[in-house]
C-alpha cells in the first residue's frame, strides 16, 4: 500500500493505490519500457482545446491521460504594486476541488495547490519569460492584472506539467482589450476602452515556460509519471523550461534525496524535453488558431 508522494501531506482518506510486488518490481527494474508501453521519456497523449469559456478573456482545457485541467484567464484593471509601478502582474490560483480526487477533500488539496501556484509564480518571474511591462496602462497608476484560475477537474498524476501546459495555452489565447488614456482631468486620468470588441492585443507567450516533472525511480528517471509510478518514487524534480530552452526555476519534490550527478543529468534531460514540449505546444496552438472556427469539443468529455 503506497501513496503518491505529492499527496503525502493530505489528511486521512487517502485513495490508496494498490500495487502488487510484481508491479512494483516492474516499475523499479523494468527496461526502457513502462506499463503503458511508453519509453521513459515519452508523454501520454494530450488533448488540448482553447477558447471554451465565453466569459473568460482566454481559456484552455487540457487533458493528459487522466489528468484534466481547465484554465480561465480574466484580465482586470488595477493599480500596480508600489514596488513595481511600471509593470502589470499575473496572479495564479489553483483550485484542487474534492471532485478531482478524494485526497483533496476538506483542506487536503490546499498545500498542493499552494505549491503549484508558488512554483508557477516563481517560473514566470524572470524577465526572460513574459514581458510584464506590456501590461502597464498608465505608469504608476493603472495596469492590467491577469487572473489565471486553474481548475483541476481530474487528477491522474503529473499535475505540474498538465497545469503548466494548460496555463501557457490559456495565456496564448488571452485577449487584452485596447485601452487609451483619453484626458488627464487634473490628477485623475480618464481611460477610454476601444469600442471595437475585436480591437485587442495578445501577450507574447513564445518564451513562457513549461514545467517538466522528472521522477527518480530505481536507477532511472522518467517523465510524465502515472500515479502508480509516482507512488514508487520518493523524489524527483520539477523544472521550468522556457521556449528558449533555458531553465527558469527548479525545485526538488518528494521526501527523498538525490545524488548530485543524477540531479545534473536530470536537469539536462529536462531542458531537452521541455524545449520539445514547448515547440510542439506552440505548433499545435498555431494550428488550432489557423484552422479557424471548428466545432468545439467542450470539457468533461
Amino acid at each position: 500500500m503506497s501513496i503518491a508522494p505529492q499527496l503525502l501531506r493530505g489528511p486521512s482518506l487517502m485513495a490508496e493505490i494498490l500495487l502488487s510486488e510484481a508491479e512494483k518490481a516492474f516499475i523499479h527494474h523494468g527496461d526502457d519500457l513502462r506499463c503503458d508501453g511508453r519509453t521513459r521519456l515519452d508523454y501520454r497523449p494530450i488533448i488540448l482545446e482553447t477558447g471554451l469559456v465565453s466569459n473568460a478573456s482566454g481559456s484552455s482545457r487540457l487533458r493528459l491521460a487522466n489528468s484534466d485541467v481547465l484554465v480561465g484567464v480574466k484580465v482586470e484593471l488595477a493599480s500596480p504594486l508600489s514596488e513595481k509601478p511600471l509593470e502589470g502582474r499575473l496572479e495564479f490560483f489553483v483550485d484542487c476541488s474534492a471532485n478531482a480526487t478524494p485526497e483533496f477533500e476538506g483542506r487536503g488539496g490546499e498545500d498542493l495547490a499552494n505549491e503549484i501556484c508558488r512554483f508557477l509564480q516563481m517560473s514566470y518571474m524572470s524577465g526572460d519569460t513574459i514581458n510584464l511591462s506590456e501590461l502597464s496602462v498608465l505608469a504608476g497608476q493603472q495596469c492590467w492584472v491577469l487572473y489565471v484560475d486553474i481548475l483541476i477537474l481530474e487528477c491522474g498524476g503529473n499535475l505540474y506539467d498538465t497545469v503548466s501546459l494548460a496555463v501557457k495555452s490559456a495565456l496564448y489565447t488571452t485577449q487584452i482589450p485596447s485601452i487609451k488614456v483619453a484626458t488627464m482631468d487634473g490628477d485623475q486620468p480618464e481611460l477610454e476602452l476601444s469600442e471595437d470588441p475585436y480591437d485587442t492585443k495578445r501577450l507574447n507567450t513564445q518564451n513562457v515556460p513549461c514545467l517538466v516533472t522528472l521522477m527518480k525511480i530505481g536507477n532511472h528517471y522518467l517523465v510524465d509519471p502515472t500515479p502508480e509510478e509516482e507512488c514508487c518514487s520518493s523524489s524527483g524534480v520539477v523544472v521550468a523550461v522556457s521556449g528558449s530552452k533555458k531553465i527558469t526555476a527548479v525545485r526538488k519534490i518528494g521526501s527523498g534525496s538525490l545524488h548530485p550527478e543524477s540531479l545534473v543529468s536530470m536537469l539536462k534531460t529536462a531542458s531537452e524535453v521541455g524545449a520539445v514540449v514547448n515547440k510542439i505546444l506552440m505548433k499545435k496552438l498555431l494550428e488550432e488558431e489557423t484552422a479557424g472556427k471548428t466545432q468545439k469539443v467542450g470539457f468533461m468529455r
Partner: peptide, 18 residues
C-alpha cells in the same frame, strides 16, 4: 553525498547549474 533540497529561481542553462 545526497541532495535533499534544491530550489532554483531565475534563468540558467543546465551546464551553469552543474
Amino acid at each position: 553525498q545526497q541532495i535533499c533540497a534544491y530550489v532554483h529561481e531565475g534563468v540558467s542553462n543546465p551546464e551553469e547549474l552543474e
